[in-house]
Design a protein around this nucleic acid. Structure first.
Lengths: 124, 124
DNA sequence: CTGTATCCTCGGGGATACTG
DNA sequence: CAGTATCCCCGAGGATACAG
């Protein structure tokens, strides 16, 4: 989500000697939030959980998302090492997106949150 | 974060008979994301995890946040049943914010995500 | 089919000043 | 101390058209 955080120090503790990079994080959760903070990120993660999907497949799975936004989010997730992009140079183009091991571990870490939402927010 | 989602149906499954409310969610994760989607929400949750805090205390704990934004987020978290606001009618005013049981359960569900972020994003 | 290229909207968030 | 009240910016996200 490209939030550039102010020098928030919640968990305080020892200071990070050398600030990792501009827009540094300060605790695990907001670091993770930066990765999954896009409007459709978690939905993409979820959609990719069971098996790889092609671009058009994803678009159809996420009604309402535009090509531009889907591309943007996929590129960011790819840059973060969450999803893997496999392009087969044929005509018509054939591209498959899948979760990397890191992406799978993220999805696992997301599960409790999903359970929480299902139990406490949904089924009102 | 007040995103009004399009009719996304990732987890498919049976359809929600009666749509819960405008801006409905469709799986636990994005339902949860709606609750913690503010820029400072998870930081507030984190700050409140160990013990209640007063308004000014929170503001000092979250360097960079403004009164307006802190108030907005606290009001939203309160509306979502995540934080509890206890005002003591004295002068000067004394107000304490704390996590509700629901808030504590949310924080627990957030923990794995925090671990993930700490392990895979931080300490680059 | 899988994307680019443009342009634009909109509201979350920030800055600042003020009040009970 | 604990907030309101205003005004405003900016960029993520959307709409649309086009391309290899």
């Amino acid at each position: 989500m490209k939030w550039v955080r102010a020098p928030a120090v919640v968990g305080h503790s020892g200071g990070m000697a050398t600030t990792p990079r501009p827009g540094a994080h300060h605790c695990g959760i907001d670091a993770a939030m930066d990765v999954i903070g896009g409007k459709w990120k978690v939905l993409i993660l979820w959609a990719l959980n069971d098996h790889p999907r092609r671009f058009g497949d994803l678009r159809r799975t996420l009604p309402g998302i535009t090509e531009k936004v889907l591309t943007d989010h996929l590129r960011e997730l790819e840059a973060d090492g969450i999803v893997d992009r496999q392009a087969h140079p044929v005509t018509p183009p054939h591209v498959e997106y899948s979760l990397t091991p890191l992406g799978r571990s993220l999805n696992t870490a997301l599960a409790p949150l999903g359970d929480w939402g299902r139990e406490h927010v949904l089924n009102a």
